[in-house]
């Protein structure tokens, strides 16, 4: 593919079921001749909110990168399947692998800068990127992890309290749960029950970054006001102990919500992935 255009990919079944994930591939006008970049958005967000509206897709295309975006299940334009399995992180990783191959990603090959794929994830997307990098070293070249956390805040989410609140307005005692639910409900278009299915599935498979550590170079980025990413240095230390080159970038004055548009973040990521 060449020239500037955006194509919607048609999905097919993975492990016998259609993941119903909305995938787009964006081609740059002037291709830098590098591997594509896969973008993974955060909880209660979408490719549009996390990557398009924030200027990421435009910045990567401007840098000559081919961009693959995917909406997570129950998010954006993806379907909201009934079955819990569709939301499990391991199932999502399997879907991402299929999406990467469907988009033309080929295994890394020494000396071929078009081989493999770079992955940028934000928040929950950073968790998925970490695991994807750790489990798919044959195709993942480099990782950029935004707003990362050593423990998934969604794993501590109080589902019962959230369901009670949704049923009859019973106040939620846990501050993190209340905050996450408020964020999820801010966007009227969110399918709140699909998002709760995702939380449920994440609780069944909580993030254990030490279990599988990516070995490829990684850049970890967070705002210095981002409480959800206060454990970023521990994540970096894990990566370094495992032999990864782990760089950290801190964005002054930014928090978990507004770090994403930061120019320094985008430029840092583009430079880090531009090799």
């Amino acid at each position: 593919m060449s020239g500037r255009h955006t194509g919607e990919m048609h999905s097919h079944t993975v492990e016998g079921t259609d993941p119903q994930l909305f995938v787009e591939v964006h081609d740059p006008q002037n291709d830098a001749g590098l591997r594509p970049v896969l973008l993974l958005h955060g909880f209660s967000s979408s490719s549009k909110l996390n990557w398009h509206d924030t200027g990421w897709v435009a910045a990567l295309l401007e840098a000559g990168r081919r961009v693959i975006t995917v909406d997570l299940p129950g998010h954006g334009r993806s379907g909201a399947p009934e079955d819990m399995d569709s939301y499990s992180p391991s199932r999502i990783r399997a879907d991402l692998l299929q999406i990467a191959f469907d988009a033309g990603v080929r295994p890394l090959h020494d000396g071929d800068p078009t081989s493999g794929v770079d992955v940028v994830g934000y928040s929950l997307g950073a968790r998925l990127a970490w695991e994807f990098g750790a489990t798919q070293p044959e195709i993942v070249h480099r990782l950029v992890l935004g707003g990362p956390n050593i423990a998934d805040p969604l794993a501590a989410f109080d589902l019962i309290a959230a369901q009670n609140y949704l049923a009859d307005g019973t106040p939620i005692a846990d501050e993190s749960t209340a905050g996450l639910l408020k964020m999820a409900m801010l966007l009227p278009s969110n399918n709140i029950f699909a998002l709760l299915s995702l939380v449920d599935a994440i609780k069944a498979e909580p993030f254990d970054p030490a279990e599988a550590v990516p070995h490829m170079p990684m850049l970890l980025v967070a705002g210095d006001q981002d409480e959800r990413a206060a454990t970023m240095p521990q994540l970096a230390a894990l990566g370094i102990r495992a032999g990864s080159m782990a760089e950290q970038l801190t964005l002054p004055g930014r928090n978990h919500t507004n770090a994403i548009t930061s120019r320094a973040f985008k430029q840092g990521a583009i430079a880090f992935l531009g090799v």
Binding site: D53, G55, N258
Partner: peptide, 18 residues
């Protein structure tokens, strides 16, 4: 035209305006 001008934050998200 389309060059990023400004980053803005709303109560729901952050956006970059071209």
């Amino acid at each position: 035209r389309n060059q990023p001008l400004v980053e803005m934050e709303t109560s729901k998200s952050a956006v970059e305006l071209p």
